[in-house]
Design a protein around this nucleic acid. Structure first.
Lengths: 356, 356
DNA sequence: CAGACTATTGCATACGTATGCATAATTGGA
DNA sequence: TCCAATTATGCATACGTATGCAATAGTCTG
């Protein structure tokens, strides 16, 4: 038996009338730092509570030209790394009194329709996780004064801010670890070939393997997708000259590869095959997998992301900033251990060759 | 060298001037179904493109009293079930031209601060996943004409809409399955004890076990949390009279329980111990786990959720609607198979006792 | 070609809030 | 106690869009 349409909601003018003050006084009551007498403030708050008043953020945004909304674009959530990122982002943004508008389900392609939506809602900032941005669009953002941060991606032109880890170094480290483990034939299951993370990780891997005299790497494409990684693993592991060590470009795929290796092909890990992954995400820590993996310091990455956004929003200066963080190779049971270089740190085993 | 503040953005009046028409004409051009001549429309679109105009959704919301934003509150994303839900929700809402404002990181407690935020942004609807709502708040929503849907939860008073599966029946089915599998001692690792899902699942389990003459169930609390589930498993499985069958209230915990059972306590699954979970979420399907699990038809649940929201937004009638969907017991390798009742369906093995 | 419509258009206003400015109230000091 | 300095307050307006209403242009019928 409702009126059939959304109720208008209590306005500041109604509260003002009730409290016997002006609408301005109500506004100032809810504006931190505004000039308002404690007595009036109390009257207003009382009236507001009686009427169930809440400031209309939409109307406020219209006049302040700030929505206090950050748009987050994530290609997919299947890989637990991203939900983790999302949760942490939500936490930190909430702390800064920002809301999170989520856009998902759009694969790596530059996503124009999504972009239109963002811009229409006049978001105060944009986080692009596992997605890139065409140069026109990023220029448009800059022109509009909207900060953009690429999370776990970079573009060649350094025009847009980014937060990443040392992927190249990570690839190197993994190669050194596997070489030190005595492996002879090396495989790589790649992520999205167009992504900077994939290029860098593979680049470092290849470089360090070459330095150790291994120039032939068996490569299959997994595109950061579980199903494709399974296919890639089947193909790679049924070769007569199958590798005895595989670097899988992220843990999400590494899990799939381990399942195929063990349960479909009957291989023992790490006896027959060593697997190293990337991200150090949840399932990597589950004892069924225990994946040796390059960690990405998720919390610090998110912190950096939010810091960049807040800085640029506050200053209005949109100049690309690049934060590159360090990861560690967390050693577990999915790969043979080298004779030396594995140290204990904060209760984790870390590979730190050549130091102590 | 930027101006130090967010640019105002192109307005409809600017476009109007450029196109030589009134602001109304611009508005009508971007309002589907409005009365506008094709010729003028073309002029406006041309001018809009030249200036890079995008309608300001904030200003539009102010006047239409519709934000086209749906708030989604999720307690935690650690359980992959919820990211999956989120992704599907995002997809369907986008199809209906709605955006998704995400609130996360607030555990099951009725979350008033979050609620304030929602209301301030005048969201057109609210989805509460794995979270409940105090009666005052739900009444406030109803009064404001804002539809609310509880996803995978219900309240005792049926005042607020909900989408669930037959949890009670699911618990029964699991009990029947385990009894048919020849088990003698039964355990239960519970979810959040305050949640309706937990109550219902356990209720059905207990009831059906009692009907089969088993009245003593060993219970530990897992609170839908991985770490707590691990502790619970350790405790339960180190008892001298440890169960030979455990129903774990969801797959997220079941994974942890299996890890503990196998790798910490050296038990073989399902030889020494049968495990059944709930949700049929990603990791349950990974061959390392292969969890026998009651499925929740995620896509249909999300469809129902969006349908309820759209209905109520369109009609303005906020009357509680309850959609209860069916799941299936998907049989994998984590529990002993009964002699009969397991059938093949759509490439999955399903437990359907007493029928064919 | 006139008359009766219908399809377009512009004008003016409203949405709910924030804020510069001028005025009123208060405070503090001597 | 009185004046100056400070703090509170209200008025009026602006933010960018949608929309009822009246006016105009366009179309069709006979």
């Amino acid at each position: 038996m409702d009126s059939g349409v959304k109720k208008p909601g209590v306005t500041s003018s109604e509260v003002a009338r009730r409290a016997g003050v002006s609408q301005s006084a109500v506004s100032r009551t809810f504006t931190p730092g505004a000039s308002i007498a404690p007595k009036t403030r109390a009257k207003v708050l009382a009236a507001a509570k009686e009427l169930g008043y809440r400031p209309n953020a939409i109307a406020r945004s219209l006049i302040t030209n700030r929505s206090r909304i950050i748009a987050v674009v994530m290609a997919y959530l299947e890989n637990l790394f991203y939900p983790d990122v999302l949760e942490e982002l939500g936490r930190l943004l909430a702390k800064e009194d920002y809301r999170l508008l989520l856009f998902t389900g759009f694969m790596d392609r530059d996503s124009d329709p999504v972009f239109d939506q963002l811009m229409q809602y006049r978001v105060d900032g944009i986080v692009l996780a596992s997605t890139s941005l065409s140069s026109e669009l990023s220029e448009e953002c800059a022109a509009a004064g909207i900060p953009v941060v690429l999370f776990n991606r970079t573009t060649e032109r350094d025009a847009v801010s980014s937060v990443t880890t040392r992927n190249h170094e990570g690839g190197r480290r993994i190669a050194e670890f596997l070489v030190a483990g005595g492996h002879k034939r090396f495989g790589y299951i790649s992520g999205l070939e167009s992504s900077s993370t994939n290029r860098d990780r593979f680049g470092g891997y290849q470089e360090a393997l070459a330095a150790a005299g291994h120039t032939d790497i068996i490569i299959e494409v997994g595109n950061y997708d579980r199903a494709e990684a399974e296919t890639a693993a089947r193909k790679m592991l049924s070769r007569p000259d199958r590798p005895d060590a595989i670097f899988v470009a992220n843990d999400h795929m590494a899990v799939a590869v381990m399942d195929i290796a063990r349960h479909e092909l009957g291989l023992s890990i790490p006896e027959d095959l060593s697997i190293v992954g990337y991200d150090d995400v949840g399932p990597a820590r589950w004892t069924s997998y225990g994946i040796t993996s390059m960690s990405q310091p998720l919390k610090r990455m998110v912190e950096a992301t939010v810091a960049i956004l807040m800085d640029q929003i506050a200053s209005g200066e949109i100049e690309a900033e690049h934060r590159i963080l360090n990861g560690e190779l967390v050693v577990r049971t999915s790969a043979k251990m080298p004779k030396a270089g594995v140290v204990e740190l904060d209760g984790r085993r870390i590979y730190r060759p050549g130091r102590g």
